[in-house]
Design a protein around this nucleic acid. Structure first.
Lengths: 176, 176
DNA sequence: TACAGCATGTAACTTGTTACATGATTCG
DNA sequence: CGAATCATGTAACAAGTTACATGCTGTA
């Protein structure tokens, strides 16, 4: 899976500008994919050059013009071929869990701070995803629902573990 | 967080060869970090050149020699400085969830196959991590326990969602 | 003898990030 | 007027992957 595949997939669902794509990635994909403008725009240019998508300049009221891209037949075929390729392993780089792993090397107060910050952040992420789910659920396909439920359950289960862990740590500290 | 930081962290815990590091990453880190030999060996070479670690060749019985690396004072300082830097956001690239997101575009039988494969794989991952936990728990720090519990709860919660989702899909298919 | 595990490394390549650069429009 | 949002793009750089290359030892 490359950014190219994901962009083609989004354009299968509907035509988008580069800016639209970024917004959508942040809204729906945040917990399993991300692409920066530095990836999106060059990829769109390449895709157009290769004839997998076409560009159309669209004027807007009260906003700058935007370049809306649509998928072509060749683009559909390329996406089809991605869907039939082997599924790659998840690639996860979690700085947060790496820190926790080495948490014995910092002052307990620092570690507790990490846990508290982690809990707050995860709460925000879970709430946002939950809200997105409730808002968009009606228009989602069954597999999209599974997708977003995995995201939510990930956050909520992480939250439980963090809270329990924090309580355990504080208890141990007070006993000393 | 770069591979360099994580390698320094591992060498804070104990001296290792490149091969050892790879084994450890696979055993304990698999759900939040990974590095290939193509990353590990060049990084070790650079770290040694920069004076953050030292190399010692160790002969072994029945096995090839290995280069065991140990962290230096400068290396400790570098790792310390990583521990005090801002925590970066998790970076997750999940081809599996991307496929699910676009699951409406494939035949329902294919989608069901993806879910079944996903369930089997997640079961294996959860079982492996659980076994690792039981085996190493005694020697783990409190924060390492939180870390591995997050991994396990991630897998188990994903499993539940996948199973429920699969059941829902099958039900919907039979009604037609 | 062939395969699996142990062990180290390189080089070309792909990918993506960060920072920079620009500019229109709306709202307070 | 300044900040925020909408909108597009580039260039230098960092990072990591993949495939290749080598060679030992133990076991079936």
């Amino acid at each position: 899976m490359t950014s190219q595949d994901v962009i083609l997939g989004m354009l299968m669902l509907r035509s988008c500008s580069g800016y639209d794509l970024k917004m959508r990635f942040e809204a729906v994909f945040s917990y399993f994919f991300d692409a920066s403008y530095g990836t999106i725009y060059p990829t769109l240019a390449k895709l157009e050059k290769d004839g997998l998508i076409t560009k159309e300049s669209v004027a807007q009221e009260g906003k700058p013009n935007k370049n809306v891209y649509s998928i072509t037949e060749r683009g559909r075929a390329a996406f089809e071929s991605y869907l039939n390729s082997d599924i790659q392993n998840d690639a996860i780089k979690s700085d947060y869990l790496v820190r926790l792993f080495f948490g014995e090397m910092v002052d307990p107060a620092v570690l507790i701070g990490w846990l508290e910050k982690g809990i707050e952040k995860t709460e925000r992420q879970a709430a946002k995803l939950q809200a997105d789910y409730e808002r968009w659920e009606a228009g989602m396909s069954p597999s999209q629902r599974i997708c977003i439920e995995i995201g939510i359950s990930n956050y909520t289960s992480r939250l439980e573990v963090l809270r329990r862990g924090l309580a355990r740590l504080k208890e141990a500290l007070e006993k000393e």
